[in-house]
């Protein structure tokens, strides 16, 4: 009896593992194709099979993509644009996260008349297709004297990121017992003191979730990057797009693929290293709607 049950259990487990591995394989396929292609030479790509392992792996394409591939008439690879992206992403993530934290704190624990409405309005704002705001935003940036500057681009990312960061923090803070706020108030703590001494210490998981989300969104952005950057300050996605569309004497798919992976490395690294905390952060309350 027990042995039968055990087998049934084992079959079930095997089935689960099989399904999970099957999907893991499917999810990995594109990355696998990109990675193996980046290690092949052009001849092998042309003649060989998409899924085949490289016969004689070479890092030529990686070196070229990083330092000497052409993006338009400049041939300095992706390196300079990589740092441009860093200069845009870091301030934009920090500012939008901090603003989101304060907003979420107010919307969760310092409600006033109309604050719920404000939250709804902000939430709806997440759904504006970005193509719509390209032109009016360009005009506004022009009026502010920030057209085609890094500052302007950071500002745009902050503005359209804040809706999401606010949503994250608000939903997280709603789960923190209001009694804590009341107790702190009785102790004479004010708005900022409560935030600093009660909420910040509890906020690590949601900071992780928000930072990962914002980092991914802004690093991967193409539309704002191409429209609001100036020459020389273009982010890496724009450079990648130029690189992939630049071919001097035949298309170098291996370089394209290497460049694509380079452009994705920071976000990949963030997910691989911090992914654990991401799920933990979501568990800690971000999903409680």
């Amino acid at each position: 009896m027990t042995s039968l049950k055990l087998t049934k259990y084992n079959i079930g487990r095997a089935f689960i593992y099989l399904i999970l591995l099957f999907f893991a394989f499917l999810y990995l396929a594109p990355l696998y194709v990109m990675f193996t292609t980046s290690l092949k030479d052009i001849e092998e790509i042309r003649s060989g099979n998409l899924m085949a392992l490289p016969i004689d792996p070479t890092f030529y394409a990686w070196k070229k993509a990083w330092s000497s591939a052409c993006t338009g008439s400049e041939c300095n690879g992706l390196a300079p644009y990589f740092w441009n992206s860093v200069r845009i992403v870091v301030p934009a993530v920090i500012i939008s996260t901090i603003v989101g934290a304060f907003n979420g704190y107010v919307l969760a624990k310092w409600k006033f008349k109309g604050s719920e409405f404000l939250f709804g309005a902000l939430l709806f704002g997440c759904f504006i297709p970005f193509q719509v705001i390209l032109l009016p935003m360009a005009k506004l940036l022009g009026m502010l004297g920030l057209a085609n500057t890094v500052t302007g681009l950071v500002l745009v990312h902050v503005i359209y990121g804040v809706a999401f960061t606010t949503l994250f923090f608000r939903n997280y803070y709603v789960g923190i017992p209001t009694e804590l706020v009341r107790a702190a108030k009785l102790d004479g703590a004010g708005f900022f003191a409560i935030f600093r001494h009660v909420f910040i210490p509890l906020s690590a998981p949601i900071f992780v979730v928000t930072i990962i989300w914002q980092f991914t969104q802004i690093w991967n952005d193409f539309l704002f990057g191409v429209v609001y950057s100036g020459s020389g300050t273009q982010p890496i996605t724009v450079a990648l797009n130029n690189l992939v569309n630049t071919s001097v004497g035949g298309k170098e798919y291996n370089v394209d693929m290497a460049a694509a992976i380079i452009a994705a490395l920071p976000t990949l690294a963030v997910y691989v290293i911090a992914g654990k905390y991401f799920v933990r952060g979501l568990t800690a309350g971000a999903v409680k709607g």
Partner: peptide, 22 residues
């Protein structure tokens, strides 16, 4: 979990070509 999650980390500007091939 990381394998399932990673596509979210990459922009389609990046994976578009690979998908086109596949």
């Amino acid at each position: 979990r990381t394998i399932y999650l990673y596509p979210m980390a990459i922009s389609f500007i990046v994976t578009g070509t690979a998908w086109k091939w596949i």
